[in-house]
């Protein structure tokens, strides 16, 4: 299943105002991996996602999905495989009902009405909002909107699910529900987040971006325990790791 592999080779991108957001980034994400991309504000995470999805094209380097290089010609084909859940669900929900929003993608790929209905029902069932099928998106709560936004991309049957700050604005219960949904998605996942506990919970590999470059890449537990690295990149050790280390010290003291 190497066709789900994403390879980023020497990627660089400068905005028209000359600001270099990405400088020579390279990494590979294998099929089925859950990868967290973390970094401080302005480190280049969102720009990297835009480049992965072909919303913008790099000034240098390339993105390969499977063996196919991302270009304007291959964009439509690649976008069927990679899907993004936006940070702000309101950007993703633009039609008049949840059903129409979830059906928007499958309809664009000219699937039959029966197939569209099936996909919509499956996606809504998966995220637990089947009862909101005919509701107007603007009437949903923040958590429901996020679930609907995820359903819009699940209905596309993507090979790779990309999420930009998925837990922003969610209450603890909705956050937990989102983590459960993410755990059920068994294809490749790429998650950018400041919520390092979420990354710890859902990702096997973590890439730390700092000032447009890869500062570290490795197993999540290892990367997120590296206090020095995280502080250098203006990040903090996640609360759960801090707690674990405190408990460990407590036991050590007791011994």
């Amino acid at each position: 299943m190497s066709h789900h592999k994403i390879e980023v080779r020497n990627l660089a991108y400068s905005y028209p105002d000359g600001c270099q957001a990405i400088r020579d980034i390279s990494f590979t994400i294998r099929h089925g991996e859950s990868v967290g991309i973390i970094g401080a504000n302005g480190s280049g995470k969102s720009t990297l996602l835009m480049l992965l999805l072909g919303i913008m094209f790099p000034s240098k380097g390339q993105v390969l999905v499977g063996d196919v290089a991302l270009t304007k010609k291959t964009l439509a084909m690649i976008r069927q495989r990679l899907q993004l859940v936006f940070q702000d669900s309101d950007d993703q929900l633009f039609t008049t009902s949840v059903f129409d929003d979830v059906a928007f993608g499958p309809r664009n790929y000219n699937l039959s009405p029966t197939e569209v209905d099936t996909r919509v029902d499956e996606a809504l069932e998966q995220v637990g909002i089947a009862h909101l099928k005919y509701k107007a998106p603007y009437k949903l709560s923040g958590g429901q909107k996020k679930a609907a936004a995820i359903a819009t991309v699940l209905a596309m049957h993507p090979d790779v699910l990309i999420m930009d700050e998925p837990t922003s604005g969610l209450d603890p219960k909705s956050r937990r529900r989102l983590i459960d949904i993410l755990k059920c998605f068994d294809h490749t996942k790429i998650i950018t987040s400041h919520d390092l506990d979420l990354v710890l919970d859902t990702c096997q590999i973590t890439i730390v971006i700092n000032d447009g470059t890869v500062a570290a890449i490795g197993p999540t537990e290892e990367v997120l325990s590296n206090r020095e690295l995280l502080e250098r990149c203006d990040l903090e050790v996640p609360l759960s790791i801090k707690l674990r280390s405190l408990q460990g010290n407590g036991r050590h003291d007791a011994d």
């Binding site: 919303i55 993004l84 633009f94 309809r107 569209v116």
Partner: peptide, 22 residues
């Protein structure tokens, strides 16, 4: 905001024509 909405549409296969509602 409209640009972000347009990105969201483009990522789901929108190519300048609203899909048929079936």
């Amino acid at each position: 905001r409209a640009q972000r909405v347009h990105y969201a549409m483009g990522l789901r296969g929108f190519q300048g024509r609203y899909p048929d509602d079936g």
